[in-house]
Each structure stands twice: as C-alpha cells, then as structure tokens.
Design a protein around this nucleic acid. Sequence first.
DNA 1: TGCCTAGTTAGATTATTATCTAATTAGATG
DNA 2: CATCTAATTAGATAATAATCTAACTAGGCA
Lengths: 195, 195
Amino acid sequence: MQLEKLVAFHKTLGDVTRIRIISILANGPKNGQALAGILKLTAPTISHHLTKLKDVNLVTDRREKNTVYYFLNEDVLEHYSSGLPKMVSKKGDSNKMDNQKLILEHKKILDNFFTADGRLKTIPAQRKKKMIVLYHIASLLEKGRKYPEKELNEFIQSFHDDFATLRRELIIGSIMYRENSIYELNPREMWADIV
Amino acid sequence: MQLEKLVAFHKTLGDVTRIRIISILANGPKNGQALAGILKLTAPTISHHLTKLKDVNLVTDRREKNTVYYFLNEDVLEHYSSGLPKMVSKKGDSNKMDNQKLILEHKKILDNFFTADGRLKTIPAQRKKKMIVLYHIASLLEKGRKYPEKELNEFIQSFHDDFATLRRELIIGSIMYRENSIYELNPREMWADIV
DNA sequence: TGCCTAGTTAGATTATTATCTAATTAGATG
DNA sequence: CATCTAATTAGATAATAATCTAACTAGGCA
C-alpha cells in the first residue's frame, strides 16, 4: 500500500539521530565507525539506524576491504523532497564527482604511511598527504574536549615519536587551536572534506 | 533549533492515522465527529492527533456554533512538500471558494430533515437536498463492506420506514451499487463533495 | 591457521506514544 | 436554568522503538 510506504518514510525521518546521519552523509559517504565517533553512539545503534535508512532506500552501502561505506541516496530524498535539501546544504564541494574514488585514495595513502598497528612510519613531505595523515590522527580526538599539552603529547606519541613536529603541524594546518597550552579541535566541520 | 522542527514535522507525519486525517482534510474541512466516524476512532483520539497536527501548523481550526471545523494548512504542506501532494490530489473541486459556507448549508439542511434523534422526517423532493440526505445516511455505512439486502433494509429503516424508496435512490444516485442483491458503497471518494 | 577489525544480531531496559474510558469544559438551545 | 452536543483533559494500558552490552559473523592479513 502506497500509504504505508509514505508513513514509513516519514517515521524514518522522524528521529534526530537519523536526520543527523543523513546530513552527515550529504557531505559524502562514511563508514560505521566514523558515524559512531561523530555522533557518540555505539556501533550497534548506528547499525540499527542504518538498516532503517536502508529499508526506505535512503541509504545504500558498499563494502571496501574490511569496512562498509554508507551512501546517501539523494534521488529518494529529492523524490520525497522534504525540506531537507535546504538544511542539508552541501559544503562547497565543487567536484564531488567521485567522492568514492577520493575515499579510496585516502585509504591508500593512510595504508602507506601507517603500520599495521597504527603507528606513523614517517611524516609525509607532500603537503596533501601530510594533511590527510594529520586529519586521520585528529579524527581520533574528541570534538569539543580540551587537551592539556601533556596529554596531547602522549596521544601523538602513540603514533610517532616526533610529537613536537606533529603538534605544531596540527596548529599550522588549523586542525587544532591552542589557548594557554590547552589544545582543542577546531570546531569547523572537519569531517566535511576528509574521511 | 531548525533540526528539531524538521524532526517534529516528520514525526507528526509518521503515523497512519494522521496521514489519513490529512488526506481527508485535503478534500475540505471536517469536524471532529466526522473524522472520528470515518476513521472509526474515539473523539479523544482524534483530538490527540489534531493537537499534534496543529502543533506543527499543518492544521488550523475554526469554531462554528457548537462544532469545530479543522482545516488543512496547505501552505505548510507545500513548504515541506513531502510527496503527499501527489497522493493527496484534490478531487476536481472547481470552486472550493467557500467550502466553509457549503458545510454550514448542508448542516442546515440536515437539521431540517432529521429529527433530534436522527430519524428522517420526510424524503426531500428537491434533488439537491435529497442527495445531501442520502449522502448523510450513506456516510454511516462502512466503506468496502458488502451489505445483504436484508441488512441494508434494516439499516435504512432506522432512519425512515420507506426503506425501499431510499434504497432505490441510493442506487440511482450511484452512491451504492448492487450485485446479486448484495449492496456496497461506491468506491469513489464520497466524502469529497459533501459533509 | 589464527588473530584483528568492522558490522550485525540478540536481549534487556527505558522512553515515547497511540489508544481507550471517564471526567470536564464550553457553547447552544429550549 | 437545565440540558444537550462537541471537544478537550486526565489517567491507564499496551505497543513501539532508541539505546546499550554482550555475543556472534565475516573479511583481511600475518
């Protein structure tokens, strides 16, 4: 019945978490762990919501090695077009042509620069690669939380011994900012451009 | 917060009963009793849903004597435009200009032809009035249900002793149709033009 | 083969909500 | 004023669903 479908669609969108997931995915695909991190929810909860979103065809997924990326199906969204497009406005992604390809490229770079147990082999010289590595490291920090310099150092050192250089790069790249030796992630939507 | 509003809107639409109410109101205002009758729910339940619909501005109401008529706010619906417009397509209501006035006119006619305890005083001679009366009686039958002639007779007789005439009029007016002495409401949206 | 990581499934808990009955409010009407 | 009808409010019940922890599954990779 057509009516049931419409109700299901709205019921799916009638939940804050799912709307958040949608607006995140509007800026490009993400995997489950990333979503869980951003929304500060557990993996099963994310999984729960994603199945609901998949049920009404708002989201599709695609496996890449060990991790599954979730894509927003914008056609459906536009079909039911529900005011969302306005609030969910994409960031200035001029050529989002192949977001997927971008992800894989990033993944490859990370694979090259990190060891299996997650340590950074060397600090990349190439600016772009360096940024990708820095973003990756920063992605494991808690958004909104303040880190004393000592704590941040220890954290960075778990990736690479030259924590001083890396810490400075995080500031220069405006991924973090510092106030009285207290560090914090920059509030700007850091997940927008990178995985 | 804008997000909360969007969620609230969808949550409101994520319920079968409320979608039904909306698609009924799309064909013109109704009062609470009428809605309760059509949807076979109690008055408090209808009231509950209507307050929710009013909360998100999908419905407004207007009191007329003792009874309150509920109007669909089509602007909001179009603003959030949610696939509903398609399924909720108005019937060919050319001059809906004053639906409200129409309602009151009908009410007056019904008041004139029915006694306080709901019996039909006389069968109207004027075609238009007769139709209104017939629709009113038919509105108490169950859509989609098949009535054996005997049962239908008894039902009609609860309004007026000349059940044979009324039964024939229901067929002539194509409000009902008959197959092998089994009667059924015509499937066309009978609530569109009346009540 | 055997571990590691990402996701899903199961089950429990808690919060929300659709629905009902009973009681109450608000107008209208005789 | 007394009564009637329509609507809302209060309170109870039962169903749905969001979230968590714990256990399980399924690919990579050493």
